[in-house]
Amino acid sequence: MQWFLDNVPFVAELAWLHLYQSVLPLLLGLAVSLPLGWLAWRVRPVRGVVLSVSSVLYTIPSLALFVILPVVLGTQILDTANLIVALTLYAVALLVRSVVDALNSIDDGVRQSAQALGYRPLRRFLTVELPLALPVLFAGLRVVSVSNISLASVGAVIGIRNLGVLFTDGLVRSFLAEILVGIIMTLVLALVMDAVLVLTERLLTPWLRHNRGRQAVRPFRARPVRPDAAEAAVLP
């Protein structure tokens, strides 16, 4: 505790770096995943490739990826960019799937109704499908946020500055307090980010807030299947 009070600026600086290294990949990952996920959802062959590549990416352990990336990118091993790129890749790998799942989760009736109203595909995506995809998308964002924050500290092993430094330094000095502060700060960051995401989601989805407690009316999902769904083929 005393150690923490004595080192607040140091810890704060590391926490700030840590936050930056976890949040930037989250935003970059989202920016890449939205169009990529949409494409993968619309075009079946693309979906196969994207989902396979993302599942392979996932499988590569972070420590290995941190080390292989400089070879591929030509960056220095200590460059923070390696960590940012690696976490962005993980974020894309997860979020692309979230986007596809989210778009799949939208009730077909709603989509057809938007089509019948005369929406063109781009506007339909931005004003109908994307808002309705938000709950599933945010579930993905929350997973990415937690895992990014947890993974970033592994970067300290290869010498990247963030809260992970408290672990490597604490180990070298056999100093318990420093490690505990590192763990607690990491958890706090993860919690704060999660809270921010939850709040953002609530702000963006007012229609879900309104029918909490009115679960009896579930208009779009629990309806009987249309009698001639089979003949209701839809043009994209």
Partner: peptide
């Protein structure tokens, strides 16, 4: 899940 791997190992 939010626990940092490295932190727990060193701890």
């Amino acid at each position: 899940r939010a626990l940092p791997t490295l932190g727990l190992l060193t701890l």
